[in-house]
């Protein structure tokens, strides 16, 4: 019996494909590497490397404008993620488990924020708030201002769609008989939801919430339109700094944001993957 040792020599086509994939990876990640490396640069000038240092990271945490923007970002992200996750999950349940008038229209409209250009949504929201505030002022003498409130509402508006998509995918795999079985075993609607439906769609809900959190923390365009004076979020603040010239401070802020995003995405993937094996095939396919 012969034993095969070593690998079959690679054909030219295989070599070409391998090279190509390395090039693509380089194209994706080279800028990130440059950013990360230069964020540890001691020099005042972005492009000139002198020696490694944590100087700019210290500056970031000392800079009050940056910290204020970060605080705003976190507040907006917390509010919009919580509200959008609850509303988005409810929308997914309504669409998957009930039949009602205008369902198809509602279904279509729900995905609009995902499809339309971000800048269009930004202008729409700006106009909406401006008109709304004017009307409120005239009607009841209350004139709210642009700020954390408007940013949060805007983020809720686009995040609902994303949460709904993710939760619906999960609900679609769930045998509707499970909820009937719960009702058959004397559970009220609420008990069936708490005891059966929610635990089984929780990975989807958590995935949707993390997606919403990431989108909220990253948003520039819409936030830029609906932010008021003194209420910028971190990405909007960075965007503003860049226009005045790139400083090493931006590098450090960007690396922090990048790291946070990557952690969120990784956790989100973990939820979705960990959940896949939990619904046995026999239950999923009978639905």
């Amino acid at each position: 019996m012969s034993v095969v040792t070593g690998l079959r020599p690679k054909s030219p086509a295989e070599r070409l494909l391998a090279t190509n994939s390395w090039l693509v990876f380089a194209f994706f990640y080279a800028p990130i590497v440059v950013l990360v490396v230069f964020s540890f640069n001691a020099n005042e000038n972005v492009g000139i490397w002198t020696e490694p240092s944590l100087r700019w990271y210290r500056e970031v945490f000392r800079d009050e404008a940056v910290m204020g923007a970060l605080r705003n970002s976190l507040i907006v992200a917390a509010i919009s993620t919580t509200v959008a996750t609850i509303l988005g999950t409810m929308a997914a349940l309504a669409l998957e488990r009930f039949r009602f008038r205008g369902q198809r229209v509602y279904d279509g409209l729900l995905y609009l924020p995902i499809i339309i250009p971000e800048v269009t949504m930004a202008v729409m929201l700006l106009l909406f708030f401006a008109q709304g505030f004017q009307w409120l002022d005239g009607a009841i003498g209350w004139s709210p201002t642009f700020g954390i409130g408007t940013i949060s509402l805007s983020h809720i508006a686009f995040n609902i769609s994303f949460v709904t998509v993710v939760v619906r995918a999960r609900l679609g795999q769930l045998d509707p008989r499970l909820e009937e079985a719960a009702a058959d075993l004397y559970a009220t609607r609420w008990q069936a939801f708490r005891g059966i439906t929610l635990p089984l769609i929780l990975p989807g809900v958590a995935g949707g919430a993390l997606l919403a959190l990431t989108l909220s923390l990253d948003d520039v365009v819409i936030t830029n339109f609906v932010a008021g004076p003194g209420s910028t979020t971190l990405p909007v603040y960075v965007f503003g700094l860049v226009r005045r010239g790139v400083t090493p401070l931006i590098n450090a802020v960007s690396v922090i944001m990048l790291a946070a995003s990557m952690v969120l995405v990784a956790v989100s993937f973990g939820f979705q993957r960990g959940s896949r094996g939990r619904v046995p095939e026999s239950m999923a396919e009978d639905g």
Binding site: D184, L200, R278, M283
Partner: peptide, 20 residues
């Protein structure tokens, strides 16, 4: 009457056992 208020129980074709 809703199902939870009836003195009957069901065995489903797909069994519908709670997977969690």
């Amino acid at each position: 009457q809703p199902p939870n208020e009836r003195p009957v129980n069901t065995v489903f074709q797909s069994y519908a056992l709670f997977p969690h």
